[in-house]
């Protein structure tokens, strides 16, 4: 049972000002989500698949610190960027001193799968103001997106349903965030203590390899992966790590050309794994 809340003092707003009132309203909204049974259903289902993510988060932490970042930089990156595969792709480019736009373009390409998810989530989120949509979007990663859309195949129609859907999503997101940041921090601080000569940063490459394997779920995507790998090696002579961006362009163009030659039955329309 929920304890009844005591009445807030009536002069709260005048004493705390607008920022204080806003904070109080946010805490109230969080408490309302947290009391919803579906918040904990979301948390439990996310926790069930978090065990695998913890190893990945840990390795991302190790890879950041072993690439030569300072602890401040690694912690900042983990908290602000909060996107494992984009972080892992950016780490070697940062270490190599690649131009800023190459790093950003590569990270954005890795993140393009979220663009596909956002098209789907649009129908669920549009009732909120923009700042809250983007805030919720920032915390919604691959796994919580998949769990959420499996649990709720259709967007909510009523205010009660909306409240239930958001509670479930926030429960999953907060669990995911806590596991991810906790193990990422552990990786950063333990990684800083482990010897250089072990070459532990290679774990980051292996993590990306695993994600690439999971994304190569259709024959055309596997084709895109192989073309990109070959092009990246052949164009290695380009300066400023431009081989990465050039290889992505070549691979996507080749896949689109090949796709047009295939019968439509070969093309799963809306698959969004990984």
């Amino acid at each position: 049972m929920n304890m009844p809340l005591p009445e807030p003092p009536s002069d709260l707003r005048s004493r705390t000002g607008r920022v204080g009132a806003w904070m109080a309203a946010r805490v109230d909204a969080m408490a309302r989500s947290g009391r919803h049974p579906l918040y904990w259903a979301g948390a439990r289902e996310m926790a069930g698949v978090s065990v695998g993510l913890t190893a990945w988060a840990f390795m991302t932490g190790v890879a950041m610190i072993k690439s030569g970042m300072s602890i401040t930089e690694a912690v900042t990156m983990s908290l602000l960027v909060f996107a494992g595969s984009a972080q892992l792709a950016a780490i070697p480019l940062i270490a190599a001193g690649a131009p800023v736009w190459v790093i950003w373009a590569t990270a954005f390409c890795v993140n393009l799968r979220f663009v596909v998810f956002s098209l789907h989530l649009r129908d669920y989120f549009m009732f909120m103001p923009r700042a809250r949509r983007l805030w919720l979007g920032f915390f919604t990663g691959d796994v919580t997106y998949v769990l959420f859309t499996q649990r709720f195949p259709k967007p909510a129609q009523t205010a009660t349903q909306r409240h239930a859907q958001l509670a479930y999503l926030w429960g999953g997101n907060m669990t995911n965030w806590a596991f991810w940041q906790g193990f990422s921090m552990l990786g950063i601080f333990l990684g800083a203590a482990l010897p250089e000569r072990w070459g532990l940063e290679f774990a980051g490459t292996l993590a990306l390899l695993g994600v690439a394997c999971s994304l190569a779920s259709t024959r055309l995507r596997a084709f895109s992966a192989i073309v990109a790998a070959a092009a990246s090696l052949m164009l290695l002579a380009l300066p400023f790590k431009l081989n990465i961006v050039a290889a992505i362009v070549v691979a996507v163009a080749a896949s689109l050309l090949l796709e047009r030659r295939l019968p439509p039955a070969e093309l799963p329309a809306g698959d969004a794994h990984g």
Binding site: L112, L208, A229
Partner: peptide, 16 residues
């Protein structure tokens, strides 16, 4: 193109 870019970006980074 969104279907093919993420996996391409990952393998372009890790292949070398």
């Amino acid at each position: 193109g969104l279907q093919y870019a993420p996996v391409a970006a990952l393998t372009a980074v890790i292949a070398p």
